[in-house]
């Protein structure tokens, strides 16, 4: 089996710059996902049956659909819908746009659950103590309940980030040039002569990023816990 370490490092270096793309779609999806996830979590916890229903239907669908299917549906479906609405063709289709949309849709579903569960984990007494002291409900939420919910949500958030990066890697199927897409291109250009080195380098990058994310989150968790005096 031919595997040259030097070639491995060569490709490692060639792929690294494209991490930028990966982090871009992961980051943007996370941000949008938090916004919409928060919205749907509020719906789910609220009194309106209709809103609760909408949020439940959304999470049911987007947690059950395979990411790759959603990606293709978005890739073919959105331009079609856009054309139908505006009557204009969409022109050049940038893959990253569709990847961001897809990953955001998935992230929102997960984040709705994460936030709802974290919110419920905070003892009701915290809210009661807040309002009985004269704070408004909003003040109590943002100053007392939310920070504690965030702490409960941290581990799940870490997992989510890794998940977003992994699922977004499917973007190469619609032509996205992130690390996976670039790896494929490099492989084709070298007629699969260095196929082992390329894909092992690719796997290594993903692995390291995953481990780093885990460690970062554990560190953040520890820091906050230490600050609040908990063991």
């Amino acid at each position: 089996m031919r595997f040259k370490l030097s070639t491995f490092f060569e490709y490692l270096v060639k792929l690294l710059p494209y991490l930028k793309v990966t982090f871009t779609y992961a980051g943007l999806s996370l941000v949008f996902g938090i916004v919409f996830g928060f919205l749907f979590a509020v719906f789910k916890l609220g009194k309106s049956r209709i809103l609760r229903g909408i949020a439940n239907v959304y999470t049911a669908i987007f947690r059950s659909v395979p990411p790759v299917v959603l990606l293709f549906l978005v890739y073919y479906g959105i331009p079609m819908a856009a054309e139908a609405i505006t009557g204009k063709s969409m022109g050049r289709k940038e893959p990253i746009l569709f990847v961001i949309i897809t990953v955001t849709l998935l992230a929102t579903a997960s984040l709705t659950e994460i936030m709802r569960s974290a919110y419920k984990s905070v003892d009701k007494g915290q809210y009661e103590a807040g309002v009985s002291i004269g704070l408004t409900e909003i003040q109590t939420f943002f100053r007392i309940v939310f920070p504690q919910a965030l702490l409960y949500a941290l581990p799940s958030l870490g997992n989510l980030v890794i998940y977003l990066i992994k699922e977004g890697s499917l973007g190469f199927t619609i032509g996205l040039v992130d690390i996976f897409g670039k790896a494929n291109t490099l492989n084709q250009n070298t007629y699969s002569n260095h196929i082992l080195e390329i894909y092992i380098a690719l796997a290594t990058i993903y692995w390291v990023v995953a481990i780093a994310t885990e460690k970062l989150l554990k560190y953040a968790e520890q820091k906050v816990k230490r600050e609040l005096g908990r063991a």
């Binding site: 890794i162 992994k166 190469f172 894909y199 796997a203 993903y206 692995w207 995953a210 481990i211």
Partner: peptide
């Protein structure tokens, strides 16, 4: 750690 940190597609490739 490896199986959870790398995308399935990469494992497939």
């Amino acid at each position: 750690s490896f199986a959870r940190g790398t995308p399935v597609m990469v494992q497939i490739y």
